[in-house]
Every structure is written in C-alpha cells, then in structure tokens.
C-alpha cells in the first residue's frame, strides 16, 4: 500500500484490504525478548490470549512461534504462564 499522492487515496479516507497494520513493525519497541521453553509448555494458550500484539502464533491448538517483528516485549506472556515456559531476556544494546 504505497500511496504517493492524494490522487492515489481511496475516496472517503477509508482503508481497503484490511488489516494493513502488519506492514508496520513494532518489534523494535522492545527492550526485553521472550524466550520460549517448549519443554515446559503445555499449550494452554494463555500467552496467545493475552499477547496484546498478536505476536504469538497458534496452529492446531499449539504454540507455533513468537513473532519478534511485532513483540513489544511487555512480558505479559511470561508473567501469565503457569508453567514458566517463557522467560524475558534483556535485549543486548
């Protein structure tokens, strides 16, 4: 969705082909990164539910991956996990 001029814009200021926000990466906001420990994971999906950034992907009821392109490093996933299957690690600067 690369608009160059006002002539490219849809009338009425609407946005088509939604959602478009994945084109905007928020992964660089974080100062800590979730470290997933699959051995401890029971796939209760609480981290998926509470991840504010839809950065934890689930497939067939199982945690598939952590998408660090969008993870803002809030750490809710780690704090909510009853199995301690996620640890937050400080990012190296």
């Amino acid at each position: 969705m690369k608009f160059k001029s006002w002539k490219d814009l849809p009338e009425g200021a609407i946005v088509r082909d939604v959602p478009t926000s994945p084109e905007f990466k928020t992964g660089d906001w974080k100062s800590r990164t979730p470290k997933y420990i699959p051995e401890k994971c029971t796939h209760d999906l609480l981290c998926w539910l509470y991840c504010p950034d839809s950065a934890i992907h689930v497939k067939d009821g199982k945690i598939e991956k952590f998408d660090l392109d969008y993870c803002k490093g809030c750490g809710i996933c780690a704090s909510i996990c009853p199995q301690d299957a996620i640890e937050m690690v400080e990012e190296e600067v």
Binding site: F3, S5, W6, K7, L9, P10, E11, G12, A13, I14, V15, R16, V18
Partner: peptide, 28 residues
C-alpha cells in the same frame, strides 16, 4: 462508494490521519 456492511471485503472507515495524509485526504 463503500459499505461498512460489506462482510466479505471488510474496510476501515474513519481512521486516524496524522500530518502525513490529512492534507492529501482534504485535497481528495
């Protein structure tokens, strides 16, 4: 032009414009 009731092809109506597109929307 569009409809919020278009379930098959959803759209976002009334987004937030910052300084990068408001002017262009007004010209449009």
């Amino acid at each position: 032009l569009y409809s919020v009731l278009d379930i098959e092809k959803p759209i976002t109506i009334g987004p937030l414009d910052l300084f990068d597109w408001y002017f262009e929307h007004k010209r449009s």
